[in-house]
Design a protein around this nucleic acid. Structure first.
Length: 472
RNA sequence: GGCCCCAUCGUCUAUCCUGGUUCAGGACAUUUGGUUUUCAUCCAAAAGAUCACCGGUUCAAAUCCGGUUGGGGCCGCCA
């Protein structure tokens, strides 16, 4: 009965109660890598049994984010569309005497839990309704008393071998009679998961470590239902800088947040994969296909890993630099809505190697799309230059550049003409710095020759004129 | 509080399974220098971990065992 699976099948089972979280995204990635590596199937299952909290909007976000990463699924399910299946097994469990109706109120239960915890006892359901007779159940139901369905948990040690952690053991008496469903048509998490994993013939359950204490419950249910047992692999958790589970108070946690900031999916995939996994070599730049080739569950780390944005930024820069100019321009378009494509392409060309996030393109290259630049005139001065010297340089620049024809207005030519002038000043910054600032209005930017070329003669001369007027 | 999991540079990690090759290797971040002005890129270098602690096994331990401490996760009619 155990692990008789013909085919390797894994699943990613998010619940659409929020946008796709980074931690979940990584679980999806690991499942996907494993499935691809082992030529198995990857199943996407939307766990939307909690109708109150689930929404189609979040489902769309999750699906969109997965697609953005390039994660594709072979089969798709929604738990809300499988209610009859759960009802079938639920009835079986009740008829077999393995599950029962519990009429305890939520308030009563919560009070009991608190009492147990403060008394140093494990918070376990008392079993009050466990042995209600059929008559009592019928009577309660006739009176309209609300109930839920609980599992009659057998007392035993539950052991399983986790593919990442090895043997793990729980004592079921500490788990107690956990809940299975609110009613016949409203299954709850642990129950729905077990039914689906079985029906969908899931061979490996790969999920976050936060589910490790759900595993014994699910195994108990599998045993009660005579289901085969999948293999388990519990991934280390993704941590915030304070080493607590990554959550909203740490800042952005959803994939779409990062997408909107201009992170590339290639960088995110590479980054997430290396949070808790590594190939055992010194290579660190990995595409999805490379990851698929080298992935193995054995090399997954046991300890949680802190989400380090600096490293993500670095990787994002790496992938931005790898893009072709056309591709990168296309990617930048949404981040510079006012720019026309041809102009933007010129700007992107100049700033590709300086970009860490696509969103930075707007601020970095804003001078391209403005007619008048705003900056402090002091910025025009290199080291301890005076107003007079600066003015002189600007005049000189104006004069030289005026004589260069449009046809010869290229980066190479400008450099050929201006460099000797700069050299003759002994300190090239005296000429190059004011020129660059006049053109960009910034203390940091691309070089003056390439900027001048991209701006064109007319605009360049206009900016030098503007700079000159600033000084008087 | 109970149960479970984890523990190598600030961060991600290699070495650990199959003890000696390691006064522990790489990457990010940091600092410094170089690359025809700035920033970035690129290159080079520096600094950074008595392998959490204590004990045991052994000729020999980051590597095996036990304990301690620390951190984390879970304890819902959420998933």
């Amino acid at each position: 009965m155990i692990n008789e699976f013909k085919q390797l099948r894994v699943r990613f089972a998010p619940s659409p109660t929020g946008k796709l979280h980074l931690g979940n995204a990584r679980a999806a990635l690991f499942n996907y890598l494993f499935a691809k590596k082992e030529k198995g199937k990857f199943i996407l299952r939307i766990e939307d049994t909690d109708l109150e909290r689930s929404s189609l909007e979040f489902e769309k976000d999750i699906i969109g984010s997965l697609k953005w990463f390039g994660i594709e699924w072979n089969e798709f399910y929604r738990q809300s569309e499988r209610i009859e299946t759960y009802a079938k097994y639920l009835e079986k469990l009740i008829n077999d005497g393995k599950a029962y109706h519990c009429f305890c109120s939520e308030e009563e239960l919560e009070a009991k839990r608190h009492e147990q915890m403060s008394g140093g006892l494990p918070p376990v359901y008392s079993g009050k309704c466990r042995n209600l007779s059929d008559e009592e159940v019928k009577k309660n139901q006739a009176e309209g008393k609300k109930s839920i369905i609980r599992f009659k948990s057998p007392e035993k040690k539950v052991k399983f071998r986790d593919l990442i952690r090895g043997e793990v053991e729980f004592d079921s008496s500490l788990i107690g009679d956990f809940s299975l469903a609110k009613d016949l048509v409203t299954p709850l998490y642990n129950f729905a998961v077990v039914v689906d994993d079985f029906e969908m013939k899931i061979s490996h359950v790969i999920r976050g470590e936060d589910h490790i204490s759900n595993t014994p419950k699910q195994i108990l249910l599998q045993e009660a239902l005579n289901f085969s047992q999948p293999k388990y692999a519990h991934l280390p958790i993704m941590l915030g800088p304070d080493r607590a589970k990554l959550s909203k108070r740490h800042g952005d946690t959803s994939v779409s947040d990062y997408r909107e900031q201009g992170y590339l999916p290639e960088a995110m995939v590479n980054f997430m994969a290396f949070l808790g996994w590594n190939p055992g070599t010194e290579r660190e730049i990995y595409s999805m296909n490379d990851l698929i080739k080298d992935f193995s569950l054995e090399r997954i780390q046991k300890g949680g890993a802190i989400f380090d944005i600096e490293r993500l930024n670095y990787l994002n820069g790496v992938y931005i630099r790898q893009k072709s100019l056309d591709e990168l321009t296309e990617l930048c378009l949404p981040f510079a809505p006012n720019a026309e494509k041809k102009q933007l392409k010129k700007a992107v060309a100049l700033y590709q190697e300086r970009l860490k996030k696509l969103s930075e393109i707007a601020e970095l290259t804003d001078f391209f799309f403005k007619d008048v630049l705003e900056y402090n005139k002091e910025l025009l001065k290199w080291k301890n230059m005076t107003d007079g010297e600066t003015k002189e340089i600007l005049d000189k620049l104006d004069k030289i550049l005026c004589d260069i024809s449009d046809k010869k207005w290229t980066k190479e030519n400008l450099e050929k003409i201006l460099m000797p002038e700069a050299e003759s000043l002994k300190d090239r910054g005296k000429l190059l710095w004011p020129l660059r600032v006049a053109l960009t209005g910034k203390k940091a930017s691309a070089g003056p020759f390439e900027v001048a070329e991209a701006l064109g003669k007319e605009k360049t001369l206009d900016r030098i004129k503007q700079a000159r007027e600033l000084i008087k």
